[in-house]
Amino acid sequence: MIINNEDITKTAQVKEDEKRGIVDIFVTDINALKDVALSLSKMGFDHCLSVTCVDYRSRMSVMWHISSYSKDEYKGHVLQLRIDVDTSKLTPDPNYRAPMINVPSLVEVWKSAEFNEREAHEMFGINFQGHPDLRPILLSEDFYGKWPMRKDFTFDKSGAKYEFE
C-alpha cells in the first residue's frame, strides 16, 4: 500500500489494483475532496495528468489522475482520485439542455489541472467551483451547453446546418 496516510484513509476508500496500475481513491464526501487533495499534494504527488469523467447515466464519476515528478518512490504510480455525483435527481436547467453538475475545483492544489478541468466542463457540463477561467476551450460556440460527451447526447449529421459569417 502506498497510501497509508490517516488523513486520507479516514475519508476515502483506497483500493489498489497492481495488475492494471491503478490506485483508486474514492472520496465519499464531496466536501472532503479538497482536504484529501491537499494531503496528497503534501505527500509529494505534485502534478495532475488528467481530469476526466465517466457518465454512468444515473451517476457521474469525476476523476483526477495524479502522479509525482519529484519523489522517486511515487514516480511509477498513478493515483485516481474519484468522486461520484448522483445525477438522477437533478432538475433541468432552463439555460441548457441538461443540468450542470457542481464539483469543487482542484486548480488551487494542482495548477496542471486547469486546462483539463476546462475541457471536462465543456464536454460534460461540470461546474468546477473555484476554477479561475471556465471558458469553452475546444468546441465552437454551436455546441456549448449540449455537453456532447454525456451518454444522452445525440446528433444527426445529415440535418446539421452551420452558419458562415
Binding site: 468546441l139 465552437s140 454551436d142 452551420y162 458562415f164 459569417e165
Partner: peptide, 11 residues
C-alpha cells in the same frame, strides 16, 4: 476541417 476551422478557411 472542423466547424471552427472551416469559418477561418472560408474567410
Amino acid at each position: 476541417t472542423t466547424i471552427k476551422m472551416a469559418r477561418i478557411v472560408k474567410r
